[in-house]
């Protein structure tokens, strides 16, 4: 029985080449179509990126025709007013980006002062101390925090935090602007906490268990193990997590549009109003604008600047994280 079945099977098999001829054309076409489709999909993303970078670049070059590069990069004054009529007063705009950089840096610094410690400490708790139950409860909540739209954070900053800061500091005799860098920065910091904490959590969890056991085996307590062994081992990765937080802070738009000011003060006092690169880009491009005036072109130059800054930060952060991961693989 088995033998006849086998014989029948062997009879029935056509040669390899015969099958190939029939199936090949269809198969190759199918494979090609699929491949082309996949390639096209990924090309869309790549070409869009390249397109955006080049459009930023070309518009920036046009902008630099009107405003010298050095005036842009090192100018201490930002007031992008361009005359509508030739003879209008105050027709010459000032496009010095330094106040915007300082403002962006100030708000990012306030944000990281909040997000750095909070994110790091919660990551240490989650990775080293939390019971599986507490972890299963806290992790999703942090993820929800990461999912809140930034516009919600924005009006929270405007309606709750800023008035609270202003009123409470007035009562102790401080003058705080209602659009202070502090309010925007603190709220932005809360927004960044889950980013820092989830990245740092991964990094700390990736520290090999053998290092912890080595420390426990020597009689180290839990806190000694975390402080002396785990954190130093995770340090490069933690640096990467913080840098990604910074990069998020300087690119964040909605919170600062709503809660930070518009006037470009050159100050490092977080109680005053400052403005940021992103806020000014929004301001430059909202409303009816001529698209060939330096005022609108300035938005592209700012965009390019921001892009370069976040790109560099992200690259350094990724490098740190990757180098760290290689060390323990």
């Amino acid at each position: 029985m088995a033998q006849t079945a086998m014989a029948a099977r062997d009879e029935a098999r056509p040669s390899l080449l015969a099958v190939a001829k029939g199936r090949r054309a269809r198969q190759i076409l199918g494979e090609r179509v699929l491949l082309g489709f996949l390639l096209a999909s990924s090309l869309v993303a790549i070409l869009t990126t390249i397109g955006i970078v080049f459009s930023l670049l070309f518009e920036t070059i046009r902008f630099l025709d009107a405003v010298p590069l050095l005036d842009f990069l090192f100018g201490l004054n930002w007031s992008p007013q361009i005359a509508i009529r030739e003879d209008q007063v105050g027709s010459s705009g000032a496009f010095g980006v330094v106040p915007l950089l300082v403002g962006t840096g100030l708000i990012a610094a306030v944000a990281m002062t909040v997000a750095g410690p909070l994110g790091l400490l919660s990551a240490i708790y989650l990775a080293e101390y939390a019971s599986p139950r507490a972890r299963g409860f806290a992790k999703p909540i942090l993820e929800i925090l990461a999912g809140i739209p930034t516009v919600v954070y924005g009006f929270f900053a405007v309606l709750v935090v800023a008035p609270f800061l202003r009123d409470s500091s007035e009562s102790i005799g401080f003058e705080v602007s209602s659009e202070s860098a502090l309010a925007a920065g603190v709220v932005m910091g809360v927004m960044i906490v889950p980013i820092v904490s989830s990245l740092a959590d991964d990094v700390i969890a990736a520290v090999p268990q053998s290092l912890r056991e080595g420390a426990y085996g020597l009689g180290a307590t839990k806190s000694e193990t975390v402080r002396d062994i785990v954190l130093p081992a995770a340090l490069p990765g933690i640096g990467g997590a913080l840098l990604l937080g910074v990069s998020r802070a300087i690119g964040e738009t909605m919170i600062v549009v709503m809660a930070a000011g518009l006037s470009a003060n050159l100050t490092v006092n977080p109680l005053q109003a400052v403005t940021t690169i992103t806020v000014q880009m929004v301001a430059l491009l909202t409303g009816d604008q001529e698209f060939d005036s330096p005022k609108t072109l300035a938005a592209f130059a700012l965009g390019l600047l921001l892009f370069i800054a976040t790109l560099i930060l992200n690259l350094i952060a990724l490098m740190l994280v990757r180098r760290y991961q290689e060390r323990y693989d």
């Binding site: 290092l211 056991e213 080595g214 085996g217 180290a220 062994i229």
Partner: peptide, 21 residues
């Protein structure tokens, strides 16, 4: 006291695990 116990009973592991120091 676990700290004192492990000071009296030391341990060497399967894979060398020097601290990153």
């Amino acid at each position: 006291d676990l700290v004192y116990l492990r000071a009296r009973i030391g341990m060497v592991f399967q894979k060398p695990n020097p601290f990153p120091k």
